[in-house]
Design a binder for these strands. Sequence first.
DNA 1: TAATTATGGATATAATATATCCGAATTAAA
DNA 2: TTTAATTCGGATATATTATATCCATAATTA
Lengths: 165, 165
Amino acid sequence: MKIGKGVEWAAHACAILALLPQDAALSRDALAEYLGVPAPYLAKQLQALSRANLVITQRGVTGGYRLARDAGSISLWDITAALEGTQPSFRCTEIRRNGPCGASPGECRRPCDIAAAFQHAEMAFRDALSAVPLTDIMYKATAVAFEDRKGRIRDWIEQNATGMR
Amino acid sequence: MKIGKGVEWAAHACAILALLPQDAALSRDALAEYLGVPAPYLAKQLQALSRANLVITQRGVTGGYRLARDAGSISLWDITAALEGTQPSFRCTEIRRNGPCGASPGECRRPCDIAAAFQHAEMAFRDALSAVPLTDIMYKATAVAFEDRKGRIRDWIEQNATGMR
DNA sequence: TAATTATGGATATAATATATCCGAATTAAA
DNA sequence: TTTAATTCGGATATATTATATCCATAATTA
């Protein structure tokens, strides 16, 4: 049971994009520099966010990435699902039908109880992440940030964001 | 985010062991035949259950596997943890410290908010599985089993279990 | 037109999951 | 005491997935 590190990268990337002023954007390289991660691989994660319609991309000289909608309507589950997909983590191979005492098709109308239990647990996992919007992350992060760092972030965005008017 | 199939195998194996009479045991090969899975790989999962003290093993001519404690006190989480370990699925690499605006150590006294959210979600996942004891699986499975199959299972156990007196 | 940027595919490598086998230790029965 | 059966741990092999990079192409703006 493991979650790819792309989820972490994408979550932090979205957290920065949420700080951008209206109509501003950040390029792939700028995001990679800010996060301190390799740009080519980060691009992969950003593409996944784009396919999931969580970020809007714009090509060209003033292009880059920006959030597709309000930060309050994007949850950690949205980001996780964009990167990892929505397939259940527990894959039922219908073991109950195997062997000398295998269950008949008639007994398998309902899903396997073990699989059902895992499905239920995954729902709880998903719900917990769905309850955390990007705004929560933003608020908590700024709450502990020292004043000088807030200024540095503001300056960096000012200098690196495109499309700011 | 994925769970190894060993968890499924182990869960079904435990479900059968829960049906055994007191002091009875099933050998590796008998379990593999019942589940319809390859015996050598199943042995790996059983070893994990043994290390986690969920099953008791006995070597020798009348040896085999049996539950280490009451089926009501073994949950699906116990089995999952035995196979997959208890390390968090979300691995925080402290991205917040990277880059030109990285957080200072003083700002990182508390765990990263993103990591904390995932930790909370995992707790919900764990709790959901912890709430499902083996007895639940047994009860639900027998509830939908046809009468003739119940008899076949009883007969198969009678013929394949060791240590029955 | 030129410069800049994201996209998608292809590729390479590392890590993990899956699967099997074998010798050693253990145990009960002959 | 011997023999047969059984689990255990390690070693190994293969398949699948994760991680990471690169490049040609399309799109966009100055």
